[in-house]
Amino acid sequence: MIAIIDYNAGNVQSVLFAMERLGVQAVLTADHETIRRADKVIFPGVGEASTTMAHLRKTGLDQLIKSLTQPVLGICLGMQLLCRHSEENDTPCLNIIPQEARRFQPVKGEKVPHMGWNSLKIRNNDLFTPDQEGQYVYFVHSYYVEDGPFTTVLSDYILPFSAAIQKDNFFATQFHPEKSGPVGEKILRQFLNL
């Protein structure tokens, strides 16, 4: 059973449908016991950092997420919330992965959000395979997690930034694997096979 954490994030339906296409059973839930017992947990995210963190604290999901020991996959905002802090409304986050989420600062008139398909640069890690080097995935974000010790995949927009991070059982992608065609489906499958 795959638990997708329900915290009023935008477009969780897409993640549910992606699981359906992969033929796995997934449930959208905020129930602590269901999440704790799940084989894998997906922490999706479209939304704003401070509002979302306030909601997670109010519901106790913040402590629950920190205590999880099975593989967890944060997506987009879910990735930024796993970090220490986000510049989005100066928000202290879950601090599971000690890196920073910063706002893109254009240097040559680049557009923000970074929206569209960009390519991956893979480092050694437990989730991605070397043949995924250079493949394109779909991003939509205005904040990015800086390159750091837990960065496992880089992408480049304005500067090199974390396309994926990992610490222990916590994995996260800035891009949307559920919206990244066959490349994204393979990454989701690799996560489900961990």
């Binding site: 449908f17 949307h176 919206k179 489906e185």
Partner: peptide, 11 residues
Amino acid sequence: AREISRRLSIP
């Protein structure tokens, strides 16, 4: 929209 989202894995 629901049927498109169910079937397609691109935005």
